[in-house]
Design a protein around this nucleic acid. Structure first.
Lengths: 200, 200
DNA sequence: TTAGAGTCCGACCGATCGGTCGCTATAGTG
DNA sequence: CACTATAGCGACCGATCGGTCGGACTCTAA
């Protein structure tokens, strides 16, 4: 029936699976992914799908890693060229605010990080650890620029980087919440206002 | 085998089911509730359990309502006696910070509201609507005291209540995140520091 | 040209899912 | 005391879950 595929086509199949997994997981959660439905959506067999990953858990982690790449490409990369310190920090934050809108196609159900963090923060296992690792990397990136901004005198000398990261994260959780649960169109501006206060 | 129960005992059974559902859902999510496992945990039959609610969805909503009662009793009630305005607002916020610790028995997996909001913000249906309604009520309560505080001159005249609610919510999302995913013991103090800045 | 690796399918597995049904035994009501 | 309402059970339902297995096929490297 369906023709067998070359290695290049196989890679393409894998991409399709991950892409769809990210989209589904952003709505239903990583635990809400099911091999059967996913295979049916993509018009392939369950075993063909699972052959690419071996395990549902491996698929979840692959989806998580992909979400991380999307996030990085949308929020971190565009700002990476700016000068370390407050300039780059504000560039990151602005990209972060528009990120949800820009990646609506990849994340129809909202940011997969936020969702996964809440979904797995009460469990154990490799997925939870993967989520925690990704957040740690992200916090480190923010911390670095905050520290640079303090050294350059762009932020008050007494600034506690960890505290600032705590507050920044909160603003984005709240943004995600307002957008996803209430469709609040004024939320991005609220987030910007909150950012201005925190970064001054 | 097991004796049939009187109406009073039936009510007690219902309580046990809901109590356990809240605890499980705080870890596994409302969608992670399963009738079979729940029944086995409680030593009753699936049909006996489902007879109290009729539907898994009804059970989810019952658990959500119970979580709301717990939240209200822990955060709202203790502060209800304080003077409307900043006094009550700060009393609420302090209770809110200690709420997670105090209700660790009921919510072993963290605040069920935060979890449910993220879990259902990409879906449709009665559960999502119930979650949204609960958040709307909560925001209204906060907004009322913020407005009173502004009228009493306890907060700057230009304060936008909705903006302040946005930022308060963010602080608590971040608190929940830091506690649940990283077990960060300094998170409550970070939250208090952030609150002090926002409410001054 | 041929052997091996890799892709994918279809059939199948035991377990579990949410939910239904008929029934028994009791509690509460008149 | 008789009647009804109901709490709870056990058996069962079709659907779906994650996952396995053997084979058909194709591509690639030797």
């Amino acid at each position: 029936m369906s023709p067998r595929k070359s290695a290049a086509e196989a890679r393409h199949t894998r991409e399709r699976i991950i892409e769809r997994s990210v989209a589904v997981a952003s709505v239903e959660g990583l635990e809400g992914l099911t091999i059967g439905r996913l295979a049916a959506d993509l018009g392939i067999s369950k075993s063909g799908l699972l052959g690419h990953f071996g395990t549902k858990e491996a698929l979840q982690i692959a989806a998580l890693r992909r979400a991380s790449e999307i996030f990085t490409r949308a929020v971190w990369v565009p700002a990476a060229g700016a000068a370390p310190g407050l300039a780059r920090l504000t560039a990151i934050c602005e990209a972060w605010v528009t990120y949800l809108d820009r990646e609506r196609e990849a994340f129809p159900g909202g940011c997969l990080f936020t969702a996964s963090a809440v979904e797995f923060d009460g469990r154990e296992g490799p997925v939870r650890e993967a989520v925690a690792r990704l957040y740690t990397v992200w916090r480190r990136r923010l911390t670095r620029d905050i520290r640079a901004a303090v050294e350059h005198g762009e932020l008050p000398a007494g600034t506690d980087p960890e505290q600032l990261v705590f507050e920044l994260n909160g603003i984005y959780f709240s943004l995600n919440h307002a957008v996803q649960l209430f469709g609040d169109a004024s939320a991005p501006d609220r987030a910007r206002r909150a950012l201005r206060r925190v970064l001054s």
